[in-house]
Design a protein around this nucleic acid. Structure first.
Lengths: 208, 208
DNA sequence: CGTTAGTTTGAGGCAGATCAACTTTGGTGG
DNA sequence: CCACCAAAGTTGATCTGCCTCAAACTAACG
């Protein structure tokens, strides 16, 4: 069952503006005001926060058929993070006015978005708790599973893994070396594979 | 402008179940399945996560006219945290079935809830970033401002401040001593007052 | 192949947690 | 009303996980 959100884009075909982004390009910046929704047709995007001191945090991933920019639109605030292209993307943009109109006519379509955001809020809060009660290697292991299972073909960089797990590039390198020695993952060039997810989950719970 | 959510409770007056909770009592536990919405008539509640190793995280505050249990209901998952009474509460409970029905008939009422959750998601993610890029004293200072401005009459404990800021009781005590010496806050028994919020904000930005 | 971005490894430092001992507060029951 | 005492808060000493800094290595792309 596909989200009804796609229908909003489908039914406004002639109003859509297409964009193409290459790795590293930015779709929108922290602090910008939301102008509408972005639908990812293909590729991979990440939502990142950059602190005044330069430290980056990686909040969420967006892939094909995901929408971007919806949280700030509904919260009625400017973007709290920047949307960055991880892998060449084709993106459709639909302006605010059409979205306003759509939800006025189809308020029941709010529900799948509410569900998505409610899930994301739960995940975010679990990550807050994890930053305080889990070790670095445990968060890194979880992140490897999460990112790799979600996008097996994309070769995640150590930096992305670090920013998602709330650690550093060096800690990720050390953790991955250790996990490889334990036979839980396998390194292949810059990429990696998860060899035994169950043993890895067990390993995570031991780390307390 | 009051949220329309209150109307859902008002219009189901005869269906409501009243509860009264005293400090420390639990409204629902992590892992329980949502059975409906809770509306706080008076008092103060907190949403807490307890890790296997015993470490607690304080996610959100709920006061008069706030609803509780809505996130899990819309996410369609069990509670990810426990709702604990901080100050004697009067609470109304409205069962799921009435809520289902209400939103089927009034899907436009989803919007204020979506807004609330979208804001909470933003706040949660900003807290994730802050745990990595801000110092302990900076997070503690922010937490003092946030908690005290939101509920000036409630005497927040060092433990609550610690669990909200992602630090420890001892770090909070030390930070508060320091902030008092700087003339930014004033300690009065176990309670405290913020003397100069602007200077305190400046102080926070210096901590990088 | 050469260049550069990405990765690894080592050494060292430190912010903040932990552990422990002591003090203060404020509620309550005699 | 006051004395008591358990809970809350403070302070000092120590410890440690992980970050930081630095330097060498290597994959991948043009």
């Amino acid at each position: 069952m596909k989200s009804k959100i796609l229908d909003i884009f489908a039914s406004h075909n002639e109003k859509l503006i297409s964009k193409e982004l290459k790795r590293g390009e930015i779709l929108y910046h922290m602090g910008d005001d939301p102008k509408g929704f972005y639908l990812i047709q293909s590729g991979l995007m990440g939502l990142f926060h950059i602190a005044p001191n330069g430290k980056e945090s990686f909040f969420r991933i967006f892939a094909k058929d995901n929408i971007l920019g919806h949280r700030s639109y509904f919260a009625e605030v400017s973007y709290h993070a920047s949307a960055v292209c991880l892998q060449t993307c084709k993106i459709s943009f639909l302006a605010k006015e059409y979205i306003d109109e759509h939800f006025k006519n189809h308020p029941e379509d709010l529900r799948p978005i509410l569900k998505r955001i409610a899930l994301d809020l739960g995940n975010a809060e679990i990550r807050i708790a994890g930053l305080k009660d889990k070790t670095a290697i445990s968060r890194i292991s979880e992140t490897l599973i999460f990112l790799k299972l979600k996008h097996p073909n994309y070769s995640w960089t150590r930096k992305e893994i670090a920013e998602f797990s709330g650690t550093t590039v060096e800690s990720v390198a050390r953790a991955m070396t250790q996990l490889a020695e334990l036979g839980l993952i396998e390194k292949e060039g810059r990429d990696f594979h998860i060899l035994d997810q169950n043993k890895m989950m067990d390993y995570i719970s031991e780390q307390d």
